[in-house]
């Protein structure tokens, strides 16, 4: 069987990729995608532990989390759309009107 450590390592790698993207990218869509990556890395962990412990709750929770991720993505893209309409860009560097 595949040991759990590998699932966890995979999740960690995916999370780190998301993290890297989150920290370096400036485009709103890329950042949203990176956030999705990080969320799903967490989901992998949930499913992995659920499977190893024979407890379906983790998988149910992963489902809920996916649904919430869908919400988040929908809202996020809607915001980006509105921003694009206003500023003609989705580069987050230019969304600083509330900044000092």
């Amino acid at each position: 069987m595949i040991p759990i450590a590998l699932y966890l390592a995979l999740a960690a790698i995916i999370f780190s990729i998301g993290l890297y993207g989150l920290m370096t990218q400036r485009s709103g869509i890329r950042i949203l995608m990176c956030v999705e990556l990080m969320l799903n890395a967490a989901n992998i962990n949930l499913v992995a532990f659920s499977s190893y412990h024979h407890d379906l709750t983790g998988q149910v929770f992963a489902l809920f989390s996916i649904a919430l991720a869908a919400c988040e993505a929908a809202i996020g893209f809607a915001i980006l759309l509105a921003l694009y309409r206003m500023k003609d860009t989705i580069s987050l560097d230019h969304i600083n009107i509330l900044r000092w």
Binding site: A67, L68, A70, C71, E72, A74, I75, F77, A78, I79, L81, A82, R85
Partner: peptide
């Protein structure tokens, strides 16, 4: 939550 977020998304995206 899903429903309301979808409604919000539509409202925002519609402009």
């Amino acid at each position: 939550v899903l429903l309301s977020s979808l409604m919000g998304a539509i409202y925002m995206a519609k402009g």
